[in-house]
Every structure is written in structure tokens, then in C-alpha cells.
């Protein structure tokens, strides 16, 4: 702005703030801007916590179980003895196995 510019005769003092004030206020602004960024970051990091906690719960159920192998389940063995015979027996095939259907033809 040339000093002979006739369009205006006054301008704002470029710094009506002291240096210290400037740094303090500027610092606060930047800190406040960082807050939401930090919050979102931590929300993103913890987003799978519930999945991990539930997973852990089931592994804990396994780790503390007295029997940990399916073929040692006495109730299942009783079911085969009293009723189904053995895996893939005709009764098993009828009650415990199934067939699937092609549904793609209908789509095209």
C-alpha cells in the first residue's frame, strides 16, 4: 500500500497483540484443533475391542472346559449309541445332512 494511495488513510495496526499473547492464543487454537483428531484416532484404534473381547470370552470357555474334544462329548456318544449309530450312518444322513440348491439361474 503506497502511502500516497488516496483510497484510505488508516489501516489496522498489523499487530495489536504482543508476541507472547500471539503464541499463547495460537497455541490454544492448535491444541483445541488437535483434540477431536486425537479422539477420532483413539476411537479408530479401539474399534474392534468388542470383537476381541467376545473372542477371548469363548477361548476362555474352551480353556476352562473339562472336556475339549468333540468326540469325547458323552452326550454325543450317547446319541450315537442310542439313536444314530455312527457318523454318516443312514439316520445321520437323513437327519444331520442336507442338500443345497442352485439359485443363480434365477438371477440371470
Amino acid at each position: 500500500m503506497s502511502k500516497n494511495d488516496p483510497s484510505h488513510e488508516f489501516i489496522e495496526n498489523p499487530f495489536s497483540l504482543s508476541r507472547r499473547e500471539f503464541i499463547a492464543i495460537g497455541g490454544v487454537i492448535i491444541a483445541l484443533l488437535a483434540l477431536p483428531a486425537i479422539w477420532i484416532r483413539s476411537a479408530l484404534i479401539n474399534r474392534n475391542h468388542h470383537i476381541q473381547a467376545r473372542t477371548k470370552g469363548l477361548y476362555q470357555d474352551d480353556a476352562t472346559a473339562k472336556i475339549r474334544l468333540s468326540h469325547e462329548n458323552q452326550a454325543v456318544m450317547k446319541l450315537y449309541k442310542d439313536f444314530a449309530g455312527k457318523p454318516l450312518s443312514p439316520v445321520s444322513e437323513e437327519l444331520l445332512h442336507t442338500k443345497y440348491v442352485n439359485r443363480m439361474k434365477a438371477l440371470s
Partner: peptide, 25 residues
């Protein structure tokens, strides 16, 4: 009788659980 289960049955709910139970047996 039907409330009896093993550790292999319970991990069915986790990814990898069915495979782990099957591998054990």
C-alpha cells in the same frame, strides 16, 4: 443331556473355531 458340551463346541463362535475343533478330532 443336551446341555453337555466341550471346549471344541464352544469355540465355533470364533473365526477359526470350527476348523480348530475339527482338527482336534
Amino acid at each position: 443331556l443336551f446341555a453337555e458340551y466341550t471346549g471344541a463346541g464352544t469355540i465355533f463362535g470364533n473365526t477359526g473355531g470350527v476348523m480348530e475343533a475339527a482338527l482336534r478330532t
